[in-house]
Amino acid sequence: MARPARLAAQGLALAVVLGLLALLVWRVAHDSNKGVSQALKDGQHPTAPAFDLRRLDGRGSIDLAAVRGKKPIVLDFWASWCVPCIHESKRLEAARRRYGDRVDFIGVDTKDFSGDARQWQHKHGITYPSVHDGSGNVLAKWGGLPIPRIFFVARSGKVVGELVVEEDLPRYLQQIASS
């Protein structure tokens, strides 16, 4: 093989190897992001990651970036196959009657079939709007499975907490409602 051709082939091989290495590093760095839930455990209060997903009821979509920073938000990740989600969503529905004028309640139906999700909402009397995150990509940014996962976002757009025990709900609701 002529010298220029050999150099070109070696350069190409080196570029491919470096490209694959860069891809690996990017992937590892990307995976190290455990989401909002981990950030909260680490004592941080990250800005709520934006999403723009279509609503389950067919009335357009909800763009969190457009809502964030205007009003406090309660974000409820649920699915129709998730049994504990029934209890938590019903509690949020009850809380909405008291705080609905000051706080936005938004559901994120995740890794779920939208037809079953609509039936589930109707069956359990859940009236706050929900968006469909079938792939679970949005859930992954907030911490992934298991669900239910419920987050509280202050008026500033920062996530102030995640529901862990029952008592967290009134505490965080009062906190973000007065933010």
Partner: peptide, 19 residues
């Protein structure tokens, strides 16, 4: 199965049953 990382035939999770 969207929650277990296996194919449906290897899962009996509620999400797999739904699909």
């Amino acid at each position: 199965c969207p929650v277990c990382g296996t194919t449906l035939d290897q899962s009996s999770s509620p999400a797999a049953q739904q699909i």
